[in-house]
Amino acid sequence: MATVKFKYKGEEKEVDISKIKKVWRVGKMISFTWDEGGGKTGRGAVSEKDAPKELLQMLEKQ
């Protein structure tokens, strides 16, 4: 499965696309949330040019 790689608060992170729940556009950035388990929700953002095609497809479906 595809993953999204991004930096959050200076830390490199990687999230499996299948865990992503919500995707939206903020200017030229793609923001998203995912389920971290245990009732926690993670947040992240990646530039439109660095976003994997699967993430962009999720954005178009909404």
Score class of each variant (00 low, 15 high):
residue 45 A to P: 01
residue 37 G to R: 09
residue 26 V to G: 13
residue 60 E to L: 03
residue 23 V to K: 01
residue 41 T to E: 13
residue 35 D to K: 03
residue 23 V to Y: 05
residue 60 E to M: 04
residue 17 I to P: 02
residue 38 G to W: 11
residue 53 K to R: 06
residue 37 G to T: 14
residue 49 K to Q: 15
residue 30 I to Q: 00
residue 38 G to Y: 12
residue 50 D to N: 06
residue 20 I to W: 01
residue 6 F to M: 01
residue 1 M to K: 05
residue 51 A to P: 04
residue 57 Q to L: 14
residue 22 K to F: 07
residue 42 G to I: 10
residue 3 T to I: 04
residue 15 V to G: 01
residue 18 S to V: 07
residue 37 G to I: 15
residue 26 V to W: 04
residue 1 M to I: 10
residue 35 D to V: 07
residue 8 Y to A: 03
residue 17 I to W: 01
residue 16 D to H: 14
residue 20 I to P: 00
residue 36 E to Y: 09
residue 9 K to Y: 09
residue 51 A to N: 03
residue 51 A to F: 01
residue 55 L to M: 03
residue 11 E to M: 09
residue 46 V to G: 01
residue 45 A to Y: 04
residue 62 Q to W: 04
residue 7 K to E: 12
residue 25 R to A: 15
residue 55 L to C: 02
residue 5 K to M: 03
residue 53 K to H: 04
residue 59 L to Q: 01
residue 50 D to T: 11
residue 39 G to R: 05
residue 18 S to G: 11
residue 19 K to C: 11
residue 12 E to H: 06
residue 45 A to Q: 10
residue 24 W to A: 05
residue 58 M to V: 05
residue 59 L to F: 02
residue 31 S to R: 07
residue 52 P to F: 03
residue 49 K to S: 08
residue 48 E to P: 10
residue 32 F to T: 01
residue 3 T to Y: 05
residue 20 I to G: 00
residue 27 G to H: 07
residue 40 K to N: 11
residue 8 Y to W: 11
residue 56 L to F: 06
residue 52 P to Y: 02
residue 27 G to Q: 13
residue 23 V to H: 01
residue 57 Q to I: 05
residue 11 E to T: 09
residue 38 G to P: 06
residue 34 W to C: 02
residue 15 V to D: 00
residue 9 K to N: 11
residue 56 L to K: 07
residue 42 G to Q: 14
residue 40 K to V: 13
residue 4 V to Q: 00
residue 13 K to M: 11
residue 42 G to P: 06
residue 29 M to Q: 13
residue 62 Q to F: 05
residue 30 I to V: 12
residue 10 G to D: 09
residue 33 T to V: 11
residue 21 K to T: 10
residue 29 M to L: 11
residue 34 W to V: 02
residue 15 V to E: 02
residue 35 D to N: 12
residue 39 G to F: 09
residue 18 S to I: 10
residue 50 D to A: 13
residue 47 S to D: 13
residue 4 V to C: 02
residue 2 A to Y: 04
residue 22 K to Y: 06
residue 20 I to V: 11
residue 55 L to P: 00
residue 37 G to D: 14
residue 2 A to F: 03
residue 25 R to P: 08
residue 8 Y to R: 02
residue 5 K to F: 03
residue 6 F to Q: 01
residue 58 M to C: 07
residue 31 S to G: 06
residue 55 L to V: 10
residue 54 E to H: 05
residue 41 T to G: 14
residue 58 M to A: 08
residue 7 K to D: 14
residue 13 K to L: 12
residue 31 S to N: 10
residue 8 Y to I: 03
residue 4 V to W: 01
residue 26 V to S: 13
residue 62 Q to Y: 02
residue 43 R to C: 12
residue 54 E to A: 12
residue 40 K to I: 15
residue 45 A to S: 14
residue 23 V to D: 00
residue 49 K to G: 14
residue 60 E to Y: 04
residue 3 T to W: 02
residue 37 G to S: 13
residue 39 G to C: 15
residue 19 K to M: 12
residue 30 I to L: 06
residue 17 I to N: 02
residue 23 V to N: 01
residue 10 G to Y: 02
residue 39 G to Y: 15
residue 50 D to F: 04
residue 28 K to E: 15
residue 41 T to M: 12
residue 56 L to G: 03
residue 17 I to G: 02
residue 11 E to W: 06
residue 30 I to N: 00
residue 13 K to S: 03
residue 51 A to E: 02
residue 47 S to G: 13
residue 19 K to F: 12
residue 36 E to L: 04
residue 2 A to C: 12
residue 40 K to P: 13
residue 34 W to E: 00
residue 47 S to W: 03
residue 40 K to T: 10
residue 6 F to T: 03
residue 61 K to D: 13
residue 13 K to D: 01
residue 53 K to A: 10
residue 25 R to S: 12
residue 19 K to S: 09
residue 29 M to T: 07
residue 37 G to Y: 08
residue 50 D to M: 09
residue 62 Q to E: 12
residue 16 D to I: 06
residue 14 E to H: 06
residue 7 K to L: 15
residue 25 R to H: 09
residue 6 F to N: 00
residue 60 E to D: 13
residue 59 L to P: 01
residue 10 G to H: 06
residue 61 K to E: 11
residue 61 K to I: 12
residue 5 K to W: 02
residue 14 E to I: 10
residue 29 M to K: 07
residue 61 K to N: 14
residue 13 K to I: 14
residue 53 K to I: 11
residue 10 G to W: 02
residue 31 S to C: 08
residue 8 Y to E: 04
residue 60 E to S: 07
residue 32 F to K: 00
residue 20 I to R: 00
residue 39 G to I: 12
residue 40 K to W: 07
residue 7 K to G: 06
residue 46 V to E: 01
residue 7 K to N: 12
residue 6 F to L: 03
residue 24 W to T: 07
residue 40 K to A: 15
residue 22 K to P: 01
residue 17 I to F: 02
residue 32 F to I: 08
residue 13 K to A: 05
residue 51 A to M: 04
residue 22 K to C: 15
residue 16 D to K: 12
residue 10 G to M: 03
residue 27 G to W: 02
residue 33 T to S: 15
residue 8 Y to K: 02
residue 48 E to T: 05
residue 21 K to S: 10
residue 10 G to R: 02
residue 12 E to M: 12
residue 10 G to K: 03
residue 56 L to Q: 12
residue 44 G to N: 04
residue 21 K to Q: 14
residue 32 F to W: 02
residue 47 S to C: 14
residue 7 K to P: 12
residue 44 G to T: 04
residue 40 K to M: 10
residue 7 K to I: 11
residue 7 K to C: 15
residue 39 G to K: 05
residue 27 G to M: 03
residue 34 W to G: 00
residue 18 S to F: 12
residue 1 M to R: 10
residue 55 L to R: 00
residue 55 L to I: 03
residue 45 A to W: 05
residue 5 K to N: 03
residue 12 E to I: 08
residue 61 K to W: 04
residue 31 S to Q: 12
residue 49 K to F: 11
residue 19 K to I: 13
residue 33 T to I: 15
residue 58 M to L: 10
residue 21 K to W: 13
residue 54 E to C: 12
residue 29 M to N: 14
residue 22 K to I: 06
residue 27 G to K: 08
residue 11 E to N: 06
residue 18 S to W: 05
residue 61 K to M: 12
residue 59 L to M: 09
residue 30 I to F: 04
residue 24 W to C: 15
residue 27 G to N: 06
residue 13 K to Q: 11
residue 2 A to T: 11
residue 45 A to L: 07
residue 5 K to C: 04
residue 24 W to F: 05
residue 3 T to V: 09
residue 59 L to V: 08
residue 14 E to K: 03
residue 30 I to D: 00
residue 59 L to T: 02
residue 21 K to I: 15
residue 14 E to A: 06
residue 19 K to A: 14
residue 37 G to K: 14
residue 45 A to N: 15
residue 29 M to A: 14
residue 58 M to W: 08
residue 22 K to T: 12
residue 16 D to W: 08
residue 41 T to P: 07
residue 35 D to P: 15
residue 20 I to L: 10
residue 51 A to C: 14
residue 27 G to P: 08
residue 22 K to H: 14
residue 6 F to K: 00
residue 44 G to W: 12
residue 54 E to M: 07
residue 47 S to R: 05
residue 21 K to G: 12
residue 47 S to A: 15
residue 29 M to D: 15
residue 7 K to Q: 14
residue 22 K to L: 10
residue 38 G to F: 08
residue 23 V to Q: 02
residue 32 F to D: 00
residue 42 G to M: 07
residue 26 V to R: 10
residue 55 L to K: 00
residue 51 A to H: 02
residue 33 T to C: 11
residue 51 A to V: 07
residue 39 G to N: 08
residue 31 S to M: 05
